[in-house]
Design a protein around this nucleic acid. Sequence first.
DNA 1: GATGAATGAGTGTTCATTCAT
DNA 2: AATGAATGAACACTCATTCAT
Lengths: 208, 208, 208, 208
Amino acid sequence: MTKKFTEKQIHILDVAEELIAKKGFEGTSVRDICSKAQINVAMISYYFGSKEKMMSYLYQYRVQRTREGFSEFSETIKEGRPEMQMKELIKFLIRQLFKYNYFHGFVTQELRHTEHLKDDLLAFYQLCVSKLEDVVKKGVTSGVFTNMPKAEDILTIILGSSLFVIRNKNFYELYVRDSEEAYFSNAERKVQENLLTTIFAVLGYNPQ
Amino acid sequence: MTKKFTEKQIHILDVAEELIAKKGFEGTSVRDICSKAQINVAMISYYFGSKEKMMSYLYQYRVQRTREGFSEFSETIKEGRPEMQMKELIKFLIRQLFKYNYFHGFVTQELRHTEHLKDDLLAFYQLCVSKLEDVVKKGVTSGVFTNMPKAEDILTIILGSSLFVIRNKNFYELYVRDSEEAYFSNAERKVQENLLTTIFAVLGYNPQ
Amino acid sequence: MTKKFTEKQIHILDVAEELIAKKGFEGTSVRDICSKAQINVAMISYYFGSKEKMMSYLYQYRVQRTREGFSEFSETIKEGRPEMQMKELIKFLIRQLFKYNYFHGFVTQELRHTEHLKDDLLAFYQLCVSKLEDVVKKGVTSGVFTNMPKAEDILTIILGSSLFVIRNKNFYELYVRDSEEAYFSNAERKVQENLLTTIFAVLGYNPQ
Amino acid sequence: MTKKFTEKQIHILDVAEELIAKKGFEGTSVRDICSKAQINVAMISYYFGSKEKMMSYLYQYRVQRTREGFSEFSETIKEGRPEMQMKELIKFLIRQLFKYNYFHGFVTQELRHTEHLKDDLLAFYQLCVSKLEDVVKKGVTSGVFTNMPKAEDILTIILGSSLFVIRNKNFYELYVRDSEEAYFSNAERKVQENLLTTIFAVLGYNPQ
DNA sequence: GATGAATGAGTGTTCATTCAT
DNA sequence: AATGAATGAACACTCATTCAT
């Protein structure tokens, strides 16, 4: 069952996510979060039970939202041809990763003591795998794709490459020479081009 | 130039790396490390000056070793044909990432306050980019590769996918159902297959 | 301007002063103070920011009180004859030193890293010098004093001798053989006699 | 019995005294001393048993030297008239205090846990008292001094005023505006003038 | 006789959390 | 429902000292 949050609680989670993304879970103190959120130091324990539980709620909250978004998205492409579906799927995933980059970036690193939480994310990833699988099969059947790579391999490339770019800003900005603000949007575009090219190559895309 | 370490110091660095990889830099206390390494709590300050300096030494130590390994490796493939060179290059990089997985996995996450250290890793990545570029060009010239993707895009896919598999064990082990011990070696093999297929596809490999 | 302290904070400062006077700033641990004050070890950081800042507050607190006392005192003697004023001035200064003996005794020794704090004490001393100067001049003009020693020399003798007696208990108790408790009050009386005699001699006091 | 020290040990004591005078006993680490003395960190424990015992030896060493100096000095004035003897005695004491200012300045503050050591200094002070007493009595008998103040009061004024000037540089340099280097020599001269005037006034000096 | 690597006790401080209000 | 004062545990680090060589 999904927990319902008040506006104040959501505000705390937003602030917490931002700070944790910047300085890590352990590197972010409850006082930091409360100070930035302009609330009392005791509020986090009061609302969520503990700092760690707050992290869990933050996690669940984000995963839930992402999954909901995925369902909505799925609807919008269900009529299209496989190559279009694949393209939109890739773009959608990259979009999510960049949008919730704070979250996706740190979460597996920081959620060590709350292993069970990973199940939610895992379920989401499996949803993606199964969707990718459908599209690949359909494409192969219709002859638009020549090869049938494993869906989990495709997802690995999409998630891995995107997260790498998000988290290794220093490396990638050698090739995306832009202002701090413009970096992410340009990096996202570049990754998108790269992944579209790469994955369609792997699929042996054969335009008809 | 490069600091020399005694066996004891190297032992501490190894233990530290393992723990930091598991629990993060801030999440790992000096006491944890010393307790696991069976040394006195004061040793880390004594040997390295501080916890943070220890981290720097660990970082430099690993990067230095990796770069040395890369130089040696470069020699061994310089005579081969481009497709062989590319294949070995991909395998070598994956090998390094899995070998020093603790290190590559956490380092950009944790080195927030010591930004300058990233330069070393960056230099290494650029070395890889330039090597990849050479091989791609040679392959295109000789006709064995049809396309000329950007070398940084290739590297992004290699590093990103490998690190994703290393760090998201929970996801990937759905597909690599093995004992804890066997996971990494099998995961490495699977990633290798995936990346070889993918990158050769992108290059438009045309066996002659 | 001046920081206001709660009763608890004042209690801590009192305990701290006593211990620091006995064992020095560096020789007194935060744990010592908190243990004696029956409070938590974290309270000093919590209330004052750090041990050193606590020292600053203690310092400022004492100097401020002493200066306020001096102003009040000045009022009470402004109508009298110079010899009476001088006598009361000497007695007042000795009184202050014995009253705040912990403080005056150690403060210049311990405030090495917070030199700027000395300015407050210095300002107080200068106030004393200027008051002494007025009285001496008036006495010389009225013919009750024959000589006009420098006011800073008079102050040096008063402060130096009093502090010596306060801090070299071992020496002086050879001549003031009393119980621990009675020592200071008797020592104060003896110093007072000594300094009154001495300074009036230097002034060439000529009763009329 | 007096301990004999090797040159190395004396070197350590000299360095220790200087540092302790500057930064206090607790504020000076064994490492500081050994580093400045260019010896091994273990040497202080090795030579003196412990840091505190080193302090004791330092203390005894200085007191012993001062007493020896006092005996020599006594010889040189034993033929003179009382007023000359008193003058030389005052000058000698001030001289010693400024010469060993490091030592006299801090010693009663820092020697808290080794109370027994004070006995040596006490014995020296008593020696001074008894010498002062002799001179005063002789002067009164011969009619050159009119009053007979207590010798311990005279000593208190001499020691207290000198130490105050030595230790409260910030105050006194308002009146002794000189370079850092010149301060002490000028301050010594000024204190000497002050104390000679003051004490001869108290004695009711009556030149014949 | 002298060293320097190594130690355990102790340092000031920060932490997430609790509790009386 | 919400606060902020207060806490005890834990933190990284420094200390004087020891001990094998």
